[in-house]
């Protein structure tokens, strides 16, 4: 259940120790979250198709284990920044589904007051400090939050999520260098879903072992099975421990896959990848993997899994109803929040 670990001195190896113990309660919670992320995105896609959600809308379907596993290893006072594919990450952090759906609808009750939309979800009360929509732009920000934790002498950890395409942009390299140079409590979660929009990683990246890039900066790194929530959680716990106790950064390459298009405006397959490829990856679905584990451990049966899924579907419907009924921001909201004095 654990991802492979690579030491720069000894080369790839399996961790000596098996995965940390998990309880049935934890697994049920994670399965509930995986369902929530999946069903929320399916509902968002539906609403988008009906014209209820505008702009760009990047779904997280297929990658859910990364968000759920990473958040499981964090404390409430840790900091999180992400890219624009962040609905699932916000949900996994505990931002209420209704306030996320209302934001996708651009409504006043949205978590960013209707001013951010799909790509700019914020919830400061949960230290969820944004979806950021310029590739790689959030990585220096997350690094700065780690700097602030060290500056203040707290043991908070800052997590920056980004896609594998962002590993080719300058902000990634500048940030990792400074984080390692200054020993900042940062965890860099690289979600490698294989494609930067429609460009396969092999067409854009000379060395596809992305976690190796950490070694240029004398930083610890792991490649992790991003479809397995337990493997993700375990790797993240190691990284968080390193950050919290030793104030050292880590790069985690989460090997994952999105079943859907880059955004709602492109097809899941046909142009840059085949249907067969997508189907092949679906065999390693994060929900299926965790369900199989739980059943094997006798934590749950099929009826129990279905009951959880039904519960989530009701929760998502409630979020949608809430978004539908929420008002648009007041006209004067156009001019507020530009500067502090604007209120």
């Amino acid at each position: 259940m654990s991802g492979s670990t690579v030491s720069k001195k000894k080369g790839p190896k399996r961790p000596a120790k098996a995965a940390a113990a998990v309880t049935a309660e934890q697994c049920r919670d994670w399965y509930h979250q995986l369902c929530l992320l999946r069903r929320f995105e399916e509902k968002a896609a539906e609403a988008y198709s009906l014209g209820k959600i505008g702009g760009f809308c990047h779904l997280y379907i297929g990658q859910e284990a990364v968000g759920v596993g990473v958040m499981a290893a964090l404390r409430e006072d840790d900091y999180i920044v992400t890219s624009y594919r962040e609905h699932g990450l916000a949900l996994a952090r505990g931002v209420p589904a209704r306030s996320i759906m209302a934001e996708l609808y651009g409504k006043a009750d949205g978590c960013s007051g209707g001013k951010g939309g799909s790509m700019h979800l914020f919830d400061v009360s949960r230290n969820f400090l944004g979806g950021h929509a310029i590739v790689g732009g959030q990585i220096p920000l997350g690094t700065g939050m780690a700097f602030a934790a060290k500056y203040r002498g707290t043991d908070q950890v800052s997590v920056s999520f980004f896609g594998e395409a962002a590993a080719n942009i300058g902000s990634f390299h500048e940030s990792l260098n400074m984080a390692s140079l200054w020993k900042l409590p940062a965890v860099y979660v690289l979600e490698n879903n294989g494609y930067g929009m429609g460009t396969a990683i092999a067409r854009a990246t000379a060395n596809m072992d992305l976690f190796h890039r950490a070694y240029s900066y004398d930083m610890e790194a792991e490649a992790v099975d991003g479809q397995d929530v337990l493997a993700v959680r375990d790797a993240m716990e190691r990284a968080v421990e390193r950050a919290r106790t030793k104030s050292e950064p880590t790069l985690l390459e989460m090997q994952t896959y999105r079943y859907v298009g880059h955004s709602m405006s492109d097809a899941a397959h046909g142009t840059y990848r085949t249907k067969d490829e997508v189907e092949e990856y679906r065999k390693r679905d994060p929900l299926v993997i965790l369900a199989a584990f739980m059943k094997k451990q006798g934590m749950i049966d099929d009826d129990g899994l279905k009951a959880m899924d039904d519960e989530v579907k009701a929760e998502v419907q409630e979020a949608l109803d809430y978004a539908e009924q929420s008002p648009d921001p007041a006209p004067e909201a156009l001019y507020t929040d530009v500067y502090a004095e604007d209120g």
Binding site: Y79, V81, L129, G137, I139, P140, L141, G142, T143, G144, M145, A146, F147, A148, Y151, S158, G170, S171, E174, S175, N177, M178
Partner: peptide
């Protein structure tokens, strides 16, 4: 780019 953004992240958290 890196240290200006790092400053921004530090400012975001106070």
């Amino acid at each position: 780019l890196g240290f200006t953004g790092l400053g921004a992240g530090a400012a975001m958290v106070g």
